[in-house]
Design a protein around this nucleic acid. Structure first.
Lengths: 218, 218, 218, 218
DNA sequence: GATGAATGAGCTTTCATTCAT
DNA sequence: AATGAATGAAAGCTCATTCAT
């Protein structure tokens, strides 16, 4: 079925160009004509492969997240040690975003758009990504607890917190014009999460209460 | 000077209505006519108080953030104990966002817009807010270290991390349709940050290395 | 009746400022607010003295043409010799337009507007001015013929031609950015009109036929 | 290259309709929708062929003046005798304007607009037309002098005067509602220019002085 | 399959004029 | 008499989408 393969390949190419143009000018400012020009095809041709501009936005996100998930999956699969997996995830995120730095603002636009459009597919995609990260994080957290590295913590809550922190760092990075090294911020975060900030004395004082909270989660 | 007061008051009223309509429909989907209708004035009247739709967006953000900063400042000022200040900030954030939950998605749009518009005022506003939080967080961190609650940590890096975490939790909360209690997520975060997640054994093993990283920061 | 005098004086002042602003920016580009600012009064005040922006345009033209007619009338009245009167008219025109050079383009706008507006007053004003010049020119032509200076010519036709020539020179002067001296163009015109361009031989040949045409007019 | 031909042809058709509507209602009063309706196309289609309303105005002028120049050029080229060329120009002008009488007021609007718009193309177009007429007139004047028909006159000055007179007559014709026959006015003008108006006695008296002025020009 | 000409709903912004004070 | 806040009709232009070729 070469026709189908070709069709899919051409669609992918259009999406690639769309990703490029969206990233440069933003979703709203991008005209379908711009994408057609970038892909060196006719404006009408886009509509042979995609129903609307919105669908193109979705496809761009899908391509992006699919690559992201694949990267993380491969990196994690290459590790056996849970600690190494943690580093693998961190490094995957840093590498992925760093290597596509110019596309980062588009992710914000995607989120903002998802909250407004009637099309439920946008939020579904976001949920899918978050679920992937939550499941991975939960599983890994349980491994770390089981291996004795982590104290007892509600895996789901902690995974969500970790995802949130990653997003928060990413957000700061984007809003501040990608001026600081993502790598360092992620490493620092890991230290804080690992060790906590309480001094020895304070820790002794609060240990029981906080441990209980960690265990119970959100 | 009643004229000046009135003029400013009317502008504030228009901005209030704009905030309302923007929040409900999103910035892009909102038409100036919608705002005029909401404020029960003529479309042209808006332009007596505001130059463009964008300026209105900015004014909405300003009103919001000004109220936010004021709230935090007052709450923090009411505390003497640094630990109480931490709680005050956390509670301010939770309360503020919870009480204006419907407006939360607009903040994402503001961020996304800021990254695309030619108008530098948008990013300036964001920087201003972030600087306020960073300065406050740094100062407080230094107090906590000085008071012996916190281990030695780079105050600026930690303040930035905290801001990032808050934003990340907020982001998750918005993207998941504000379906979980913000309060709980913030509290859980505080426990993790405070205690860390390493078990006693692991902590003993890694303590020195991580402590050093905390001290050095990003 | 000082009130009436004041009212008329204030109206005249507004018209003066309107003339100034119209001349600078053009009729269409001028906003009523600009005129109010120039006159240092409130926007609404203008409407106490004038019904519409169009009426203001008319008033500006009236003030202008009234001054023009008065100037010509006075200069001509000061002469007894018909040849001196011709020079007086020419000098009046040159002086008047030269001294108000920046206002000249507005006259074109007035003409263009007169041809489009529903308000018949505009064309009436133009007709009035043209009639004044035509009557003056006819009378003077008859004097010149009677005095033996001019050959027998249809006075009305010649007066119209003269008016047309003046307007044409004025038009060229305006369209070419008032870059040539109006005075010289008018003087050259006078020489041509006076002497004609035919050489002695050609004149002898065509004299009878052309003389007849001059006599019959348009 | 049928596509190119079609594109140009369609643009020309739009311009033709625009000329029609502009002429009827005036440039300012004409809405793009009016032109679209007249051309029986969508409003947006106009913008496929023209960038702005102003560009359409310019195109209308260009089409008009191009036809005008072509007409004159052809008529003049068909004559060998300089006297016949003079008549050819006069007849071309009369015929052209008479046959497009309803469009004449638009020319005034074009002039007025040219003096106010930021777009320098308008004045450039006017200069181009004037230069064409000036060059043609100068050349012809020199021929007439060389052939012994005209007395010695500064060709450039005389050509400019002639252009001015034509414009002036045209202006009068337009402002007076095209109520008099253009033809007669042009013929009368020619007689005056040819013969001059001085009587034999006066001519003898002033001949030397005026001849000198003619020779020197403006 | 590929195209791009055609479309028109829809948007922000302007500004002459009104009228309550 | 003087004002300026309020108004809303109006208009140029954009651009996602369609569809005949």
């Amino acid at each position: 079925m070469p026709a189908i393969v070709d069709k899919a390949a051409k669609r992918a190419e259009i999406v690639r160009h769309a990703a490029d143009v969206f990233s440069r000018f933003g979703y709203n400012a991008t005209k379908m004509q711009d994408i057609a020009n970038a892909a060196d095809i006719g404006k009408g041709t886009i509509y042979e492969y995609v129903r609307t501009k919105e669908e193109l936005f979705l496809a761009v996100y899908d391509a992006w997240m699919s690559a992201y998930e694949t990267l993380i999956r491969e990196r994690v699969a290459a590790c056996t040690d849970p600690l190494a997996k943690v580093d693998a995830i961190r490094d995957s995120a840093v590498e992925f975003y760093t290597s596509r730095a110019e596309q980062a603002p588009l992710l914000l636009e995607f989120w903002a758009h998802a909250l407004r459009t009637d099309n439920p597919a946008f939020l579904e995609r976001i949920t899918r990504t978050r679920t992937f990260l939550r499941d991975l994080g939960s599983k890994l957290t349980r491994e770390l607890v089981a291996a004795g590295w982590f104290t007892d913590v509600d895996a789901r809550s902690f995974a969500d917190l970790e995802t949130g922190i990653s997003d928060g760092i990413f957000l700061a990075w984007v809003l501040e014009g990608r001026t600081f090294p993502l790598q360092k911020a992620f490493t620092f975060r890991q230290s804080v999460i690992g060790l906590g900030l309480l001094s020895g004395d304070a820790r002794a004082l609060l240990n029981e209460r906080l441990s209980d909270k960690l265990k119970r989660g959100i």
